[in-house]
C-alpha cells in the first residue's frame, strides 16, 4: 500500500508523516510539490510546516503548486487525502475542504497535547476509531482558528462533515470547537492537530494517532 507524503518548501513534518505510514504497515512514498507525478500512490498525506513561509496566507501558495493540481483531480476521483495542520490549510486553500484557517484568536502560537472527540468514524482516515472516542494528540499552530460563514457552518454540521472537535479547551478559537472536517464523500480529511506525532510511546503523548494511518490502508483495500 503506497501512501504519498508531499514535501513543499517549508514542510516540517513530512518525515514524521512518512514514519507514521511505515509504523502502520504502509509504504511511504516521497512526493515533490513541483512535480506533476503522484507516482501511482493509493493515498496522499499533506504534512505540517510552513510551506512558502506562510506568505500571502498559510497554505495559499502551496495550494497552487503543480502537484496540487494532480491531487485535486485525483481527490475528485476518490483518492484519500489527509491534510495535517499546514496540510489542512493547503486543502482549504485548494478548495478540497470548506472554510479557512486564520490567526489564533489569542494571537499566541499554541503547542500542547490536545484531547479531541472523534465525530465521524466512517471516513477513509478514521474508520479505526469509534464515534465519540476521545484521542490525545499534539496541537501546534499559530493560524489554526477554523472559520466559515455561519450559514456554511450550519450546512457543514447538517451534512455531518465535522470529523473532530476540541474537548477540554479550544486551543485557537475555532468556530464551534471544530478541529477537523471532511469532504462530502469522506475521502478527504483535514485537521489542525498532529496524529503523526502520536504514533510511538517514546516521542508522543499517546499512540492515538496511528489509527489515521491504519484506517487508510483498509480504505484503499476496500475501494
Amino acid at each position: 500500500m503506497r501512501i504519498g507524503v508531499i514535501t513543499f518548501p517549508g514542510s516540517l513534518d513530512d518525515v514524521d508523516a512518512a514514519r507514521a505510514v511505515r509504523l502502520a504497515g504502509g509504504e511511504p512514498v516521497a512526493l515533490w510539490h513541483g512535480d506533476h507525478d503522484l507516482k501511482d500512490v493509493d493515498a496522499v498525506v499533506l504534512p505540517g510546516g510552513f510551506s512558502y513561509g506562510d506568505y500571502l496566507r498559510a497554505g495559499a501558495i502551496a495550494a497552487r503548486s503543480p502537484l496540487m493540481q494532480d491531487v485535486v483531480a485525483a481527490a475528485h476521483g476518490g483518492l484519500p487525502v489527509l491534510g495535517i495542520c499546514n496540510g489542512f490549510q493547503v486543502l482549504c486553500e485548494a478548495g478540497l475542504l470548506p472554510g479557512a484557517l486564520t490567526r489564533n484568536s489569542h494571537l499566541h502560537f499554541r503547542n500542547r497535547d490536545q484531547l479531541l472527540r472523534v465525530e465521524r468514524a466512517d471516513t477513509a482516515w478514521t474508520s479505526d476509531y469509534a464515534e465519540g472516542q476521545q484521542i490525545l494528540i499534539p496541537v501546534k499552530n499559530g493560524e489554526g482558528r477554523y472559520v466559515a460563514a455561519d450559514a456554511d457552518l450550519d450546512r457543514l454540521e447538517g451534512e455531518n462533515r465535522v470529523v473532530f472537535r476540541y474537548v477540554e479547551g479550544n486551543p485557537n478559537g475555532s468556530s464551534r470547537d471544530i478541529a477537523g472536517v471532511t469532504s462530502a464523500n469522506g475521502r478527504v480529511v483535514g485537521l489542525m492537530p498532529h496524529p503523526e506525532h502520536a504514533v510511538e510511546d517514546l516521542t508522543g503523548p499517546s499512540t492515538d494517532g496511528l489509527g489515521f494511518f491504519t484506517s487508510v490502508l483498509k480504505a484503499v483495500v476496500s475501494a
Binding site: 486564520t102 490567526r103 489564533n104 484568536s105 489569542h106 494571537l107 472559520v147 460563514a149 455561519d150 478559537g173
Partner: peptide, 14 residues
C-alpha cells in the same frame, strides 16, 4: 480585508 463577520484579533491588538 477580512469580511466583517470574521473576527480580526490582530486589528483588536492594534
Amino acid at each position: 480585508v477580512l469580511k466583517p463577520e470574521i473576527s480580526d484579533p490582530q486589528g483588536q491588538a492594534v
